[in-house]
């Protein structure tokens, strides 16, 4: 519940959220704030759902029963997150059906990392470990989101994502300590994913210029998130004997990571629907939405 009575004045609302205040569904929300929330949260829901597809085909290829169970459970979690997140969007006035329609028509977006192919079991490990690690950094920052219903579900989501990271690290660990060919699968996957991982948190615009930060939907800037990712995971990657495919990567004496400028043109192109797997994955999802429309109709008619 909101701690203070929020005036219908946008400036007062802004000051309230910038001071760390949180609001509920039933509170008055400025139109711009509501629109930004829907856009941000819907993209998160889309990403959880589209994030299933890169891993989905590997559920069938998991090499042991334990891995099969763990991967199935992980991907199940992601769908569960999409379900929770779309509910928050529904409370803000946009139906799940509309979210899915806008997703498959390309009107709304999803995270860059889910537009790329999953080539080997090495990619499965890198996705579960490092993509989920990058995602959890963003998601932890959402625990302080000014929109309280979203912040609350993030607790469950972060808790589950931290399990995925453990699963991913375990998959990677088994392979880097396995045969040379297995090690190579991991290194090749890391080489493929490094670029998209460095782009994941977005270009380094100052937090103050980011409308999502202005409304305190996000509580940290893009570069801050990326630095946190590098700080947390580069040492772990190196510890496993892997090479980070960026010769310019180094930690300065003041603790700041330097790296080759990520390819921002690629990021823009990918998230606007021109990634290597965008069209194929959206078509795949759309195919099943169409094919199973009769099921939803039958359920609604019952």
């Amino acid at each position: 519940m909101a701690a203070v009575e929020i005036s219908r004045d946008e400036q007062a609302f802004l000051e309230y959220v910038q001071g760390g205040g949180q609001v509920e569904t039933s509170d008055w929300l400025p139109a711009d704030y509501r629109a930004k929330l829907v856009k941000f949260i819907e993209m998160h829901g889309n990403s959880e759902l589209m994030g299933v597809l890169p891993e989905r085909e590997w559920i069938l290829r998991a090499p042991t029963l334990q891995r099969k169970l763990a991967l199935t459970a992980k991907v199940q979690d992601e769908v569960g997150h999409a379900q929770l997140i779309y509910r928050v969007v529904e409370d803000l006035g946009k139906s799940r059906e509309q979210c899915l329609a806008d997703l498959v028509s390309g009107k709304s977006k999803f995270h860059n990392v889910f537009h790329y192919p999953t080539r080997t079991w090495g990619d499965v490990g890198v996705i579960a470990w490092l993509v989920d690690a990058a995602a959890i950094i963003s998601q932890k920052a959402l625990l302080k989101c000014s929109y309280a219903p979203y912040a609350r579900i993030m607790k469950k989501i972060c808790w589950e994502e931290s399990f995925h990271i453990l699963h991913g690290r375990d998959v990677i660990l088994a392979m880097v300590t396995g045969t040379p060919a297995q090690f190579e699968l991991v290194q090749e996957a890391l080489n493929r994913w490094w670029g998209p991982l460095m782009q994941f948190h977005g270009n380094p615009i100052p937090a103050e210029d980011d409308p999502m930060f202005l409304w305190r939907i996000k509580s940290q800037g893009n570069e801050e998130a990326r630095q946190q990712f590098l700080d947390g995971y580069v040492p772990q990657i190196l510890e496993l004997g892997l090479t980070v495919p960026d010769p310019q990567l180094r930690k300065r004496d003041d603790g700041v990571w330097e790296y080759t400028e990520p390819d921002w043109a690629e990021l823009k192109s990918v998230v606007t629907g021109h990634g290597p797997c965008t069209a194929q994955r959206l078509a795949f999802r759309a195919h099943f939405i169409d094919q199973e429309q009769w099921v939803r109709d039958a359920v609604l008619a019952a």
């Binding site: 299933v52 769908v79 999409a82 379900q83 779309y86 799940r96 099943f288 199973e292 939803r296 359920v299």
Partner: peptide
Amino acid sequence: TGIAPMLE
């Protein structure tokens, strides 16, 4: 997983 008629 990922393509059922409803998320549930």
